[in-house]
């Protein structure tokens, strides 16, 4: 299978902090890839670079044959005008453009449109795929009505697909957390992606919700959509992922199947440090550590 997304030597620096430091990996069409790593390993920063929200310091990201990182001519670097030009939209690709190319994403902290209903949230994601002009909206032409109808049907299709069973006219803030996660995934799917980036989709979900999330991600893969997920929940990752990329300090330290990763000494060292205690104790600590991280994250955005 050919590579859908190729990330080569990606680097991102905030001042002196190297958030991503020479990351390279590729995603093949229709596979499920998990990106794991301790907190602060640069997973989300890498995601943000790939989806063009952050402008990486260097490196290349090629999605579906299209370059997401644009090189500015050296002269602008020398004149220190690169940032200004990029802020005007030169030498960069906007995230909206990347989405139109077929890469959708969700966010670590749920970011639904709070003052829109569930249905409208999903409809909004169909923005780029909708034939609806200014005048036809103003005049409510038959073409407009058809477009709205098709949009609603498509949105409902996605809501059913992710297993959302509540009222579609509710405001998203009235939904329980797990339902909001579902709606967010439905919204990302409505952009009609080839690649779906899920940033900690299981964070804050209970056991049952996690099980149905696993089912859902498999269903998405069955549609032919490649899925990349960042996740702390090792159980979920081991069950879903066909390949795992492990990051630490912005660098890739391992890349392989779940079996290879669990037995990789470098990975164990990164997660557990280099002391040789009893293995069972380590396991237990891994569990409590990631629990603490998880609670921390869900609590930080209130």
């Amino acid at each position: 299978m050919s590579a859908l997304l190729e990330v080569t030597d990606l680097r991102l620096q905030f001042g002196g902090v190297k958030a991503v430091d020479g990351l390279s990996f590729e995603v093949r069409e229709g596979e499920i890839l998990a990106v794991i790593g301790p907190n602060g390993a640069g997973k989300t920063s890498a995601f943000n670079c790939i989806s063009a929200f952050y402008l990486p310091t260097s490196g290349s990201v090629v999605f579906d044959g299209k370059h997401i990182v644009r090189e500015a001519p050296r002269i602008w670097h020398r004149l220190r005008l690169v940032q200004l030009l990029q802020s005007f939209g030169f030498y960069r690709v906007l995230p909206s453009r990347v989405t139109k190319w077929g890469m959708a994403r969700t966010f670590q902290n749920l970011r639904l449109f709070r003052e829109l209903s569930v249905l409208d949230n999903v409809k909004t994601a169909m923005h780029a795929n909708l034939r609806e002009g200014f005048w036809s909206t103003l005049l409510h032409t038959p073409g407009y009505r058809r477009a709205e109808e098709a949009c609603a049907r498509e949105a409902r299709g996605w809501l059913d697909f992710v297993g959302y069973e509540g009222d579609e006219h509710l405001y998203v803030t009235h939904l329980p957390y797990g339902e909001q996660r579902r709606v967010e995934i439905a919204r990302a799917l409505a952009t009609s992606p080839k690649l779906l980036l899920l940033d900690e989709p299981a964070a804050g979900l209970n056991y049952n919700e996690k099980q149905s999330l696993i089912e859902l991600i498999r269903k998405i893969r069955a549609l032919g959509v490649a899925v990349v997920l960042i996740e702390h929940d090792m159980g979920l990752v081991m069950k879903l992922a066909e390949r795992i990329v492990v990051l630490n300090y912005g660098k890739e330290i391992a890349d392989g199947t779940p079996e290879q990763i669990t037995s990789d000494p470098v990975v164990i060292e990164a997660y557990l440090g280099v002391d040789d205690e009893d293995h069972a104790v380590d396991e237990a600590r891994l569990r409590t550590d990631s629990d603490a991280q998880l609670n921390d994250e869900s609590g930080s955005r209130s």
Binding site: P95, S96, T99, T124
Partner: peptide, 15 residues
């Protein structure tokens, strides 16, 4: 309305 509620998310939705 999407831009009003969350600009980044709107951008991520292809707007």
């Amino acid at each position: 309305k999407a831009v009003r509620d969350d600009e980044d998310a709107a951008e991520a939705m292809g707007i």
